[in-house]
Design a protein around this nucleic acid. Structure first.
Lengths: 225, 225
DNA sequence: CGCCGAGTTGACCATGTTCAAGGTGGGTGG
DNA sequence: CCACCCACCTTGAACATGGTCAACTCGGCG
């Protein structure tokens, strides 16, 4: 939990490749970006900082979140390989970003990017797509949070993550129960109890603490309402 | 509640002005858009429809929402004069849109817009800003929904709307209690009780059913945590 | 005047939070 | 290699909060 300021071992300043911008790597785009390695639980940027860069996840998982006055934390999103975060409408970040696991990122200088977009139609369109996807992602999260029951939220969360992995029926969680709780607007105890309940009902298996096997996807879908 | 299909009296097909794209009307942009008038509670588009157009609100209030299998409704956002909605990453709408009040919209053909953006740097940038704002708006909503207490949600809602009107201390609600409840993930009873509580505590006044006077903004901010 | 939709209020109940007490497992040092 | 430790997780019991159901009020309109 000790949040040291971001340490970036091997700040590979060799602004080499980094072209690949959207998930389907468009060969046309070759834009400069700096590779960064961030250790687990380190801060990438903080709410209120100048939004000089935005980032693409190469590997690992990042959380964007907000800290409330009373110490609570709300997680806005988790970002995995290929996702872009930190692209904001304002000149300052509205959220903080932290590494859930050790991760590798590409940092893009926002101003440079937007300048390039002025003369590059394809890049400009990609930026638009990124922003629209970010919007859809946030809306999807709202829908999850708007659900009334803890079971609906947890089931929805599991289904969301089942789609990202290669094997649709096994989820390897990168985050702690606390992270999940802060993402779903629940307490850690409720998340734990709900997962136990799902296991008792034969809907999932919990072979280890960070692994969840989905045993009955249909039942999960029903529970997610 | 009778949702007739969208009726558009006076479908002013005269694709006249409509330039003004962002809130600060950029003189440079003159893009074609069709003016539409929509009656209260009529549908503007439905989830799953082809996302052919996106819209700017000229006057009135629009809600974008999702309907769940069990009949519940979740409201994703309210859109007021100057707001743009219906600009989505996919080729189909992910949400439905309905008129909360009678309203006037400008419909932009998405494809045409994106084509124009290819050769128009300024327009392209404006589209990007619109998308980023949409993202920030959705994130803000997530933060509201993630709050634990009903009081925090309602207080946050009131503060959000206090900033939009000319007079910061009087809110003229366009929507019903049910709309508010569906927006905050609460029941209509809880919204009602919470507002009554705030009135008892001298934080607000409820002079009429659709008007709220904010008597103590500082207290509200505290309650919103 | 009376109806009707929208909002409020109350009593009861279900659900999730809180507080507190165990487990569990991976890593470290003896 | 084992014992210990610590962070993370699970479980239980009491409690608080919001949901549900039902009755009632209010205001506008025919």
């Amino acid at each position: 939990m000790a949040l040291q300021t971001a340490k970036t071992p091997a700040r590979a300043e060799q602004a080499l490749f980094a072209g690949l911008f959207l998930k389907q790597e468009t060969s046309a785009q070759r834009v400069v970006g700096a590779v960064q390695n961030i250790a687990q639980d380190c801060e990438i940027f903080a709410e209120g900082n100048g939004a000089e860069y935005f980032y693409k996840v190469v590997s690992g998982v990042v959380r964007t979140c907000k800290f409330l006055a009373d110490g609570r934390r709300q997680i806005d999103a988790f970002h995995t390989a290929g996702d872009i975060f930190g692209l904001e409408p304002s000149t300052q970040y509205l959220l903080s970003a932290e590494a859930v696991t050790d991760c590798t990122l590409i940092a893009y200088r926002r101003q440079k990017m937007e300048a390039l977009a002025g003369s590059d139609q394809l890049l400009s369109r990609e930026l638009l797509t990124v922003a629209m996807r970010g919007m859809a992602k946030a809306q999807h999260h709202s829908l999850l949070l708007g659900r009334r029951g803890a079971m609906e939220k947890v089931a929805g969360f599991l289904l969301d993550w089942s789609e990202s992995g290669t094997n649709q029926r096994v989820i390897n969680l990168a985050m702690t129960r606390q992270d999940i709780a802060d993402y779903l607007g629940l307490t850690i105890e409720t998340v734990s109890r709900t997962l136990s309940q799902l296991e008792r009902d034969q809907v999932i298996e919990l072979p280890s603490i960070r692994q969840i096997r989905l045993r009955n996807l249909d039942a999960l879908e029903d529970l997610a309402a």
